[in-house]
Amino acid sequence: MKKILTIGKYTLKENISNKVFNGVLYFGVLSIFFTTLLDEVALYEGGRVIRDSGLFLTEFLVMLITVYISSTYVIKAVAEKSIYLVLTKAVTKSKYIMGINLGIIYSVFCNVFVMGCILGIILYTKGQFDWWYIRALFFIGLKLSIVSSLGVFFSIISDSFVTSTIFTLFTYILGHGVMEIKAISEKLTGSVFQWILDLLYIILPKFNLLNYRDYLKQGDTNYFLIIGYVVVYITCVVVATNIAFEKKRL
């Protein structure tokens, strides 16, 4: 466990000093500042417009960084052979994968935290800050943690940055439409497509559970169930990643 935490810690350190990571983060912070301009042009509820667009920007930009880092990290480590230096220090392949996943999840939450703090300060000054906002940020972090584990998985099975990026982005998009997939599947009773869609419904992440906007008016959200779902999903993806990585000839 100690080694997983160590790999996670230094993956975070490495990501924080990554130029692409920082570039997108600066851009995100700047963009959030610009959302304050929306307050001037909004006809009513300017604060809410800032909050919604700020949260959208946070999720979108952190998603871009997450996809980039998770899809490239292991591929780069294998290509540059830096992975050997870790694997020859009493670190098993599975611990390495778990450590990398943990490090990228740390990075996701770190990014969401920085951008969330800036937006939080702006919202506070506009009198729009409440606990719903914190919950929304946490859900963004959870959603992107799933995306990060999928990025690592696709990078291991595809061996290509471009392919894994496409797969991860595609899964991110499809993950938001699982309910639609289910609805279509119910209409295609008895056909092969129904089987395919049912399978997709089972394996795709259910991002509808983590869509903060849907919880605005609901008071009966079962947080434990949602967090439990995210933990189980990430665990399944990490197990699959480990199996693929064990078979991989480095």
Binding site: Y10, K13, E14, S17, N18, K19, E80, K81, S82, L85
Partner: peptide, 8 residues
């Protein structure tokens, strides 16, 4: 060939 994380 030992590449290291350059930003570290």
């Amino acid at each position: 060939i030992s590449y290291y994380p350059k930003s570290m």
